[in-house]
Simulated assay, not measured.
Amino acid sequence: MTTILITGASSGIGARAAALLAQGGATVFGAARTTSAISELEGVTPVPLDLTDERSIRAAVDTVVEQAGTIDVLINCAGYGEFGSVEETSLTDARHQLEVNVLGSVGLIQAVLPGMREAGRGRIVNVSSLAGEFASPLGGWYHASKFALEALSDSLRGEVSQFGIDVTLVQPSYVATDWHDQAMERLTSASSDGPYASMATAMRTYFANPALAKQFSSPDAVAALIVKAALTRRPRTRYRIGPGANIAVALSTLLPDRAFDALTRKQFGYA
């Protein structure tokens, strides 16, 4: 039986993925800072985890190994979006974004790899975003975190394949969760009153438009893709999901930078 540790399992995509994995017969440990909601997921064992605390990361991995003997699959699903202009976002907030979205994930990877190497097999699934392929204004630190996760995943894949370990990325575009509400709260906190206020207003208006919902993937669809990335015998290196996801990545690559900048400004309604 496959033993899986998944972060961000208290809500949203992580909770749905954890439930699907357990329904499929895997031994699933769901990790989050607050575990009460995880306890309600049938077949999922809650594990306390603070991604900004190295001791908590090590304790979470030790807990799973003590109870299950091994970790076959690590799914890094936890994360949030720090939005606001680069100028106005405090370095404290920027550090926290990188601690949660990047360094916490890497800490877990470092903790599970010795056991995977000893077993001669394993799978690491990093839930990234299309935001890891190209950047737009007012999301610089979130984009930076996902660019970093993409680069680290690519490097890691080349390093650990010799030990029978796979590394794969899942890249959702917009997803119908409360993630965007939280991101807009961060944007308002950082940039609602300063020199970038008009851009912040335009971005909030864009995400508040009901028509945008047509471009959102459901959490269940993203969770199902994560399960596929975790369990399929020969995983792809990247799994994208969302209407127009591949086209967006292609445009970011093929268009000149300033042309893509203009396209982004038009999309979000910036002056």
Rank of each mutant, 00 (worst) to 15 (best):
A221R: 12
G107W: 01
V102P: 00
F147R: 00
R123D: 01
S105D: 14
S39K: 11
R236L: 09
G30T: 09
D154E: 14
G244C: 02
K146G: 04
R265Q: 11
S153Y: 01
V47F: 05
F216M: 12
A208V: 03
V175A: 04
G164N: 08
I38Y: 07
S129Q: 00
W141P: 08
A271Q: 13
P210G: 03
L41H: 04
L152V: 11
T52W: 03
G120V: 08
L74I: 04
F268Y: 08
P48A: 03
G242H: 11
Y270Q: 06
K266L: 07
S153R: 00
V222S: 07
R233G: 08
A245T: 12
N246K: 12
E159T: 00
R58H: 11
G164K: 10
L21N: 07
A135W: 08
A176H: 13
V227T: 09
W141A: 05
R204A: 10
R265Y: 13
R121H: 14
W141T: 09
L113V: 11
A37D: 10
F29C: 08
E82G: 09
R204W: 00
Y196I: 02
R55W: 05
R117S: 10
L21I: 09
G79N: 04
V125R: 00
T7E: 07
E40K: 14
S189M: 14
S191L: 06
P256A: 04
F260K: 00
A213F: 06
P243D: 08
E99Q: 01
A211N: 13
D166M: 04
R240P: 12
G104E: 03
T205Y: 01
R95H: 14
R265L: 06
C77E: 12
D193E: 15
A271S: 14
L251F: 09
E150G: 08
L49G: 00
Y270I: 05
